[in-house]
Amino acid sequence: MMDTLLDVEDLWVRFPSRQGVFDAVRGVSFTLGRERLGIVGESGSGKSMTGRAILRLIRPPGIVEAKQIALNGDNLMEKSEKDMRAVRGQKISMVMQDPKFSLNPVMTIGAQIIEAYRQHNRTNHADAYAKAVEMLQAVSIRDADRVMRAYPHEMSGGMGQRVMIAMMLIPNPQILIADEPTSALDVSVQRQVLDIMDGLVKERGMGLIFISHDLNLVADFCDRVLIMYAGRIVEVCEASKLSQAKHPYTRGLLNALPRLDAPRDHLEVLQRDPAWSTAPSVSGRVA
């Protein structure tokens, strides 16, 4: 049995509005070991909210409720904001979609990486600098010294995302949440970025939560997949057995994908059943 890093039980994310309370995530439960867990779903299915709720980054008026979000048995829901700051970055980190927006445009790459490192490590500037260069090299950036002095707008998308990965992994966290990390990238560099991320996560024995809307990518890349619909998990399966998924939503998504090896004249259109959004959430917990 693999050891459990993260145990999320009955997670709700709510947004009160004038029309009543909107539930973005409805009673989601899952565990994460030293594995690659994919969360798939369409826009608005609550997958990104789940990722941010784990880091307690949902801003007011949003409300996060959960029986527990336990990191190594330590319930994050009970932590103060100050204690949470020690968790963010150092224990759990997150890579976001588009490096164009997720890097501060007026700070050099170097300053931003060093800042991430020194937030959790008391070292002098020279050590932090050396560490940052080492980390940039680990994400296959040649000429790291030049990149350290560069600004985000001087980077290509793929390079920016590698910088982002370096920045998020430099405090050596146990869990990385990757929220659509390759959606903003060219197809040609997606694979390269994924491989770099995968290599580092494996090498460090980390747990990875990979949030994506791309079924093929997740099936290829992850060990286990949660399929979310309308704030709930509708199906949990091994990534390798995704093609044998049973839930009509998952089947519908799979059937809506064009396939090179089995061309069809017409792609099926997903028929939604209102019952899916009221059925209870399937647990993704591994006991």
Binding site: Q90, M167, P171
Partner: peptide
């Protein structure tokens, strides 16, 4: 509301 602010929070900054 920009995304790099979330990045800074993810880093654990005050």
């Amino acid at each position: 509301s920009a995304e790099y602010i979330t990045t800074a929070r993810v880093k654990g900054m005050s």
